[in-house]
Amino acid sequence: MSVQLYARDVGIGTPLVLLHAFPLSSAMWLDQRAGLAARCRVITPDLRGFGGSPLGAGEPSVDAMADDVAATLRGLGVTRAVVGGASMGGYVAMALCRRRPDLVRGLVLAGTRASADSDAARERRLRQAERLDRDGTVQVLLDEVLPHLVGPTTLRQRPLVYGRVRGLVQSAPPHAAAWAQRAMAARGPAFGTLRELGVPALVMVGAEDALTTEDEARAMADALPDAELLVVPKAGHLCAVEQPEPFNQAVAEFTAALARTAR
Rank of each mutant, 00 (worst) to 15 (best):
L109H: 09
L109T: 06
A110G: 02
A110T: 14
A110M: 03
T112R: 05
R113G: 09
R113L: 15
R113I: 08
R113V: 04
R113E: 12
A114V: 04
A114W: 06
A114M: 05
S115V: 10
S115C: 13
S115L: 08
S115D: 07
A116S: 11
D117F: 11
D117V: 07
D117L: 01
D117Y: 03
S118E: 01
S118K: 00
S118V: 00
D119Q: 09
D119K: 02
A120G: 05
A120T: 10
A121H: 09
A121I: 02
R122P: 04
R122E: 08
E123G: 12
R124W: 15
R124E: 11
R124Q: 13
R125W: 00
R125E: 01
L126G: 00
L126R: 04
R127H: 10
R127L: 05
R127F: 14
Q128P: 07
Q128S: 13
Q128Y: 09
Q128I: 05
A129I: 02
E130R: 14
E130N: 07
R131Y: 03
L132C: 04
L132V: 15
L132G: 04
D133Y: 15
D133H: 12
R134Q: 08
R134S: 06
R134L: 05
D135K: 14
D135S: 15
D135L: 12
D135H: 10
G136I: 04
G136M: 11
G136C: 12
G136V: 02
T137C: 06
T137G: 04
T137N: 02
V138P: 03
V138Q: 12
V140I: 04
V140Y: 05
V140E: 03
L141T: 13
L142W: 15
D143C: 14
E144Q: 13
V145F: 07
L146N: 00
L146T: 01
L146H: 09
L146S: 06
P147R: 00
P147F: 00
P147G: 01
H148M: 11
H148Y: 13
H148T: 15
L149A: 06
V150C: 07
V150I: 10
G151I: 00
G151A: 08
G151S: 10
P152E: 00
P152Y: 03
T153A: 01
T154H: 01
T154M: 05
T154A: 07
T154V: 14
L155H: 14
L155E: 08
L155N: 11
L155Q: 08
R156L: 14
R156N: 11
Q157F: 15
R158L: 15
R158F: 06
P159S: 02
L160D: 12
V161T: 07
V161M: 13
V161E: 00
V161H: 00
V161S: 01
V161K: 04
Y162K: 06
Y162Q: 12
G163M: 03
R164C: 04
V165H: 05
V165Y: 09
V165T: 07
V165F: 09
G167W: 10
G167H: 02
G167I: 12
L168H: 02
L168D: 12
L168W: 13
V169M: 08
V169S: 10
V169L: 09
Q170V: 12
S171L: 15
S171D: 08
S171A: 13
S171G: 11
A172P: 05
P173E: 07
P174F: 05
P174M: 11
P174S: 14
H175K: 11
A177D: 09
A178L: 01
A178C: 09
A178N: 01
W179F: 11
W179E: 11
